[in-house]
């Protein structure tokens, strides 16, 4: 039995750190784990996707349409873009933040209205204002750890395992801030 998680967002939001932290937590729990990410061009403010899969034995590192148990989304438009990858019965966990893509900035297209309402009619959705919670924790840069907290609540892994991974991943002076961010996400 393999569980598939997709992490989607905008280049620069820290999705790669999120998948690394998640991968470390899952590996420490004794699962077979595979992560797949894309580096290079798309990281420059483009739409970015990372896959995390775990179970007894994982073959393919990628997640296809209709296969994700969870989508963890850093931006609401990206939730709409990738929702077709969610399994029927899967859960979308999304940041409600909006980041305008270039076609909207240039005025070529409008940022769609009512995305959250539409998505909520399609699947189980939990939306949080991760930017607000990150600022509350002490830094707008902690959006990714807020979202890890949000995901952690859905998974059968003890809180200590997550906190330990945070300690091992982030620089010492940011550990407390990130733990606060994690808890705010977990309690959201």
């Amino acid at each position: 039995m393999t569980t598939s998680i997709m992490i989607v967002g905008v280049g620069g939001q820290g999705t790669l750190l999120t998948s690394k932290l998640l991968g470390d937590v899952l590996a420490a729990q004794g699962y077979d784990v595979k992560l797949s990410e894309v580096h290079g061009m798309s990281q420059r403010g483009g739409s970015v996707v990372t896959y995390v899969k775990y179970g007894d034995k994982v073959y393919s590192p990628i997640v296809d349409q209709g296969e994700a148990d969870y989508i963890l989304s850093f931006e609401i438009l990206e939730s709409a873009r990738w929702i077709s990858y969610l399994k029927v019965g899967g859960v979308l966990l999304t940041n409600s933040q909006k980041i305008w893509p270039m076609p909207v900035i240039t005025g070529a297209m409008a940022y769609p209205e009512g995305i959250l309402e539409k998505l909520s009619a399609m699947a189980e959705v939990q939306a949080v204002d991760a930017l607000k919670l990150a600022k509350q924790a002490g830094s707008p840069m902690a959006v990714n750890v807020v979202l890890i907290g949000l995901l952690s609540k859905r998974m059968d892994i003890p809180e200590e395992a997550w906190l330990k991974a945070i300690e091992e991943t982030v620089p010492p002076k940011f550990v407390e801030l990130n733990k606060r961010a994690f808890r705010l996400g977990r309690e959201a």
Binding site: G45, G46, S47, E78, R81, S84, L86, V88, P101, Y111
Partner: peptide
């Protein structure tokens, strides 16, 4: 596998200069 796609055109997000 079954899935539901968003039924409206979603603006693309090409990479851009930082």
């Amino acid at each position: 596998p079954a899935f539901k796609a968003y039924d409206e055109t979603v603006p693309g997000r090409p990479p851009a200069m930082c």
